[in-house]
Design a protein around this nucleic acid. Structure first.
Lengths: 222, 222, 222, 222
DNA sequence: TATGAATGAGGATTCATTCAT
DNA sequence: GATGAATGAATCCTCATTCAT
């Protein structure tokens, strides 16, 4: 990755672990940290990691360029912290949804509603997009996401689906074997509207309702 | 205005897609062009557009750095040509599949099989990934993809699905309203295996079969 | 369009003279700007625009390569600012000389003296040489010079010469019609000594005195 | 000078002297050589040495790029040969003019007429401009010009002027001491029209007549 | 803490020159 | 001789990172 001096110096400096300690700040400083993160999300979402200039992040955050380095080790650390920070609160929410004792269809609806409200309707949609776009180049981040988000939600969901199959709530085990199928359209919606929204916007709510219809309503084919 | 490097660099933006065909090359040179494209796909897929060094592309292609510029105006043009070149042959194939006179379920299976064989099983999977990753930053490319690929396949598919609904082949019109639902899992599979494949590989064939089951088999829920 | 280096390099041409004043610098930074300009003059004068390396300018100025870009948009802008900066203070001086109420011959002598002291005896001689050498390739610069220097001095001078003709101070109107004739030898001196000075230096003072003799003394021929 | 590989390899290869022998060609090849020189003059005059691309010269000459190297060692050699070739025939002409037995004023007029017809009215004007623009960077060329052109004409002219002074043909010796004064306006005319011609063209004929008036007519001042 | 001027490594691009055909 | 595809050195410019204030 052509990340300039940073990239080269990063490996040697790796073990320093200094930035974790940088985190705990008095309230007003936490604000500054937050405004940097907000600005960073705007810029990263608009241009991707490589094409984002810290200069622009600083300007948008209303701080000097050097200030960013008081809160984050380097550009990459800023990016990763951004993703982690934005995703963490989500985890609890989804997890909570998944474990609620609900009929399986109601659970699916809840998950989808939660997705639409908590991700699609917020800046987190951009975070997801960033993970998809940049994940290949940030294996640590993909791993984090896999471990912290997917790894927590998917097993619970899969388990609930399996039980549903056993209980006869679900006519087949396809969804239990591939719970990803539940959210694939949601993912597609994020990507579609990011890429083609200006040509043909996709109504996510309607899309997801149609999806639920196919999954749960009476029958797929005559 | 001088014509020194600085000055020259100011104009070359103009005609973006003009250079194809500008140089008709003998056959063996087409090979060289192809080996550059192949190398470029490797590098772009591994690092993304911004982080790919033309130096590396050249080395991988076994040519000198300057040679790339005999075949492509600049890095961006190389990238776009790569995507277009790789996608174009696909269009016919998918279009052909879509118009075949088949029962709707067979058609869906054909489309999915085609996808698995022609995209997922080939380097084109990387091209799709590149469009997803870089599409935001290359609006022209997103537009090209929308116009040339999606715009040709989706309407045909939607039409076939509508007819199927009218004929009672499909029990509901959800899929006809959102044909994207048919391929959403395929897309997810590409992304999943790119990001999380090393932790938990996703069996695309099985995934898509499960998907078809849900869409077409007897019933989704009891 | 990505914002990678390639893409970014396409636009920066726009506002050519916009950046002066865009960054107000403290006094000591003006010094740095000045030292870059000084170094640039040395290098441009020695090698011409195209063959000057900003690396060399930086080294000579005692700054890093990137520092130049804090003060000037690009190489071309540095060149043009150099010329403008060096020439501007001259304008007032020459203009002032031209409007003084003096007998015409005294005025001619004043102009020539001013030229020798303010141009020939200074680095401005190199600026003039640069305009001559590079003017064809920098039409804006030629225009600037025509408008700001020539356009201000020539009309005033021509007017004074016309009045002198009317008053009988001058025996013929040749000089009034072509005031350029007054300074042509000065120009030649600059070029001569630049090109042939090492073979046969030209004594500018003597040359210009001889010139004045021919223009103003009793008669040219018997 | 940033001349690419050529410049570096030039010094070691210096002693080869191979290109002098390349010159004598059968007639049709001399044509090719000539067409390259013609094209080179066009390009060098329009862009200067550094900004001229041999690609463009070749295209304009209707030959392949490599062909240039059959007739000229390198770009610099092409440039120098161009100047020498174009200037040589001039030398005889001016020399001839200078030695004619004529009254001094008639001689001056002849020289000026010759200049206007043989230089100003021809492509040689561009050669002169090139010497002025690039001379600093091609000391050999300046030397060639000084030796072959100036060195042949100036002494003869100076001698004739001295005799004229002695004979009382000239009222003062200013011109004899600085014969350059005779042609300074001619030089200025070339430069002026190259730089400012589009704003305010200078009528060279009228300029030179005015110049002669000042030099030779009755008196300069009352 | 905060700043932002300064740094300089990195990479895209150009083009003189070579050489296999 | 003639060609023009290939080469790769050279240089502009960017921007992450540092550090004196």
């Amino acid at each position: 990755m052509a990340r300039g001096p940073a990239a080269r110096r990063k490996s040697p400096a790796q073990g320093s672990g200094r930035d974790r300690g940088a985190r705990r700040k008095p309230a007003h400083e936490a604000d500054k940290r937050q405004s940097i993160l907000d600005a960073a999300l705007d810029e990263f979402a608009a241009r991707g990691f490589a094409d984002t200039r810290l200069d622009d992040v600083a300007r948008r955050a209303g701080v000097a360029k050097g200030t960013i380095y008081l809160y984050f080790r380097d550009k990459e650390n800023l990016f990763q912290d951004l993703v982690r920070t934005r995703l963490s609160p989500l985890i609890g929410t989804i997890e909570a949804a998944a474990v609620r004792e609900l009929p399986i269809r109601a659970l699916a609806e809840l998950i989808i509603t939660t997705f639409i409200e908590e991700i699609y309707g917020t800046r987190r949609k951009d975070v997801i997009r960033l993970i998809i776009s940049e994940g290949t180049r940030f294996p640590e981040l993909a791993q984090f996401y896999y471990r912290e988000v997917i790894g927590r939600v998917l097993p619970v969901l899969r388990q609930r689906l399996r039980v549903a199959v056993e209980r006869g709530e679900l006519g087949k085990d396809a969804l239990a074997r591939f719970p990803q199928l539940l959210v694939a359209p949601a993912l597609m919606a994020i990507l579609w509207n990011g890429l083609f929204g200006r040509f043909e916007p996709l109504d996510v709510g309607a899309l997801m309702r149609a999806h639920l219809e196919l999954l749960f309503d009476d029958r797929g084919t005559s």
